[in-house]
Design a protein around this nucleic acid. Structure first.
Length: 508
RNA sequence: GAUUCCGUAGCUCAGCAGGUAGAGCAUUACACUUUUAAUGUAAGGGUCCUGGGUUCGAAUCCCAGCGGAAUCACCA
């Protein structure tokens, strides 16, 4: 069911028909080869060697058109940026097509149309590097008008395309019209590439593990569930890939990592999207202390490489990614900011602490969750600069080794930045008997109504029974890291296509 | 899931003591062969999110729904 067309859309469809009538294909099949990008022309044009700048071919979208009568100034935009082009009747009125300029270029081209041009480069009186077009090829007619964003001489932006809903629903328009948006996604890719290079240079192997899992393991979260028809079994979209990567360590790979799309069936807000990207990496024969050094080195490297500095401005804070980061134990953090020693507290004491501080304390919450609640509310906001929090209570970490000095603690650290967890790492539990017990405790929590408690994964336990070397493992929430590094305050701004409610159908 | 705010032309917005709509840009026409938020003159363009209700009369008030934003809850 098509929506009713607006006047401007009707107008463009009329133009489309006229273009066809002139014998011009508005959607030609042939490739259009280019010699330069807009950026190259604009930044490397040399007035002294103008004769070298002939036969320059560019392709892109018309972003503005200033009709001066017998001449037109327009802006062409390609992936690299914009370049002014100059279209003159005298040059675009070939004898075999005398109507070309007056009928086609002037009347039938619109902002948003995609064209290929060829000509020579010159500098206008106003000092603008410009392509003097000698031939123009229609490459695609745009049937909808593009929102016109204008920037005046003071740099002030007018009529910016800002409606968050429209921007996200029509990201293709957002990307065309808001240059900062493109920049964020280029940086996102650069960040991931720098990480990948770092891992590869440390002898790590990038692998792929199942997204559809019979048992959703490796994290505490509600999964999406689906059904496999041929096998007639339920399958879950993965909430993590941890247990599969550790199977690979058991299988003899010593350094593996995966940038994994994970899925969690939770609410959507400015820090949560139902699908998100998590980097997980596992290194055999190392422990979480080694991993802390490794993360520091990784982040300092990535930030330096992508941004050319180790200082990032975020929400008014100067974040320093220069090594070493602060380190603090979980117990010290709770003592300092909540005034409690969780090692000395029973579940009941923790529950009443939550009650008296107005925090959550559902009956289904065990010790681990109560402690987590207190920590999140009272401690996390203090860790603005990159800070390692070490040695979490063992109840909160069912896949993590007990601390070598205190069995109530786990050999786990989280890296907090701007009060948010960015990385989470363990000395991985490789004792199959202990692992099975921890799974069973999770099963009990599930019976108490904790729908995020873990399932027992017997195959994973079997893998551990065959033996997995001591291993350090870590996960990094890529979207949140990208948010911080690119200065965005919502995940939707670092995801090309964030999840939205379906658009209401027109008519039907 | 709860509360609050928002939903008017392609884009950004104004209009609300209730009398069936306005601006800038965009569009159309004309003028202008070095302009750059081009300019000048003229014109067209709107189920005012949807559905009910109150009223002689609703973009404006009330109710419900849909969508979005913020805060909280839930959650990495």
């Amino acid at each position: 069911m098509l929506e009713e067309l607006s006047d401007q859309e009707k107008e463009r469809r009329h133009k489309l028909e006229k273009i066809k009538t002139l014998g011009i294909d508005p959607y030609p099949a042939e490739a259009f080869s280019t010699t330069h990008s807009c950026y190259q022309v604009r930044h490397s044009f040399d007035d002294g060697q103008a004769d070298l700048w002939q036969g320059v071919r560019l392709a892109g979208r018309l972003m503005s058109i200033r009709d001066m009568g017998k001449a037109i100034f327009a802006e062409l935009m390609d992936q690299s940026g914009r370049l002014q082009i100059y279209l003159r009747r005298d040059d675009l009125t070939p004898p075999e097509r005398p109507w070309f300029f007056d009928t086609f270029v002037k009347k039938l081209l619109d902002i948003g149309d995609i064209v290929g041009v060829e000509g020579f480069v010159f500098r206008t009186r106003m000092g603008e590097v410009t392509l003097h077009v000698q031939s123009l090829t229609m490459l695609c007619k745009a049937l909808r008008p593009l929102p016109i964003v204008k920037v005046d001489e003071k740099g002030q932006v007018h009529d910016a395309f800002t409606d968050p809903e429209k921007r996200q629903r029509m990201r293709y328009v957002d990307l065309l019209v808001n240059p900062g948006v493109r920049e964020v996604f280029l940086q996102r890719t650069a960040i991931i590439r720098a990480m990948r290079e770092f891992f590869d240079s440390h002898g790590c192997l990038e692998v792929e593990t199942p997204i559809l899992q019979p048992i959703p393991g490796g994290a505490a979260a509600r999964p999406f569930i689906t059904h496999h028809n041929a096998l007639d079994i339920p399958l879950y979209l993965r909430i993590a890939n941890e247990l599969y990567l550790k199977r690979l360590i058991a299988g003899g790979f010593e350094r593996v990592y995966e940038f994994a799309k994970d899925f969690r069936n939770e609410g959507i807000d400015r820090t949560h999207n139902p699908e998100f990207t998590m980097l997980e990496i596992y290194i055999a024969y190392k422990d979480y202390y080694w991993m802390m050094d490794f993360v520091e080195e990784l982040l300092e490297h990535v930030v330096q490489k992508v941004f050319g500095t180790t200082t990032i401005l975020y929400g008014g804070h100067q974040l320093s990614f220069r090594r070493p980061f602060q380190r603090l134990t979980f117990r010290e953090a709770l003592l300092r900011y909540a005034g409690i020693d969780f090692l000395e507290s029973t579940e009941e004491q923790l529950r009443s602490f939550c009650r008296s501080h107005g925090l959550n304390h559902e009956p289904s919450m065990g010790r681990g969750k109560l402690i987590d609640e207190i920590f999140s509310a009272l401690c996390e906001p203090h860790f603005v600069q990159p800070t390692f929090i070490m040695d979490y209570p063992v109840e909160m970490s069912p896949l993590c080794k007990r601390h070598r000095q205190n069995p109530a603690l786990a050999e786990r650290f989280e890296l907090m930045i701007t009060g948010k967890e960015i990385a989470n790492a363990y000395s991985e539990l490789n004792d199959p008997i202990d692992q099975l017990e921890r799974f069973r405790e999770q099963a009990l929590l599930k019976e108490r109504g904790d729908d995020e408690a873990m399932f027992i994964d017997y195959d994973f336990v079997r893998a551990l029974e065959f033996g997995m070397p001591p291993t350090a493992g870590m996960g990094i929430g890529i979207d949140r890291l990208v948010m911080i590094l690119t200065g965005q305050n919502s995940v939707q701004e670092v995801l090309l296509f964030p999840q939205l409610r379906p658009e209401a159908k027109a008519g039907s």
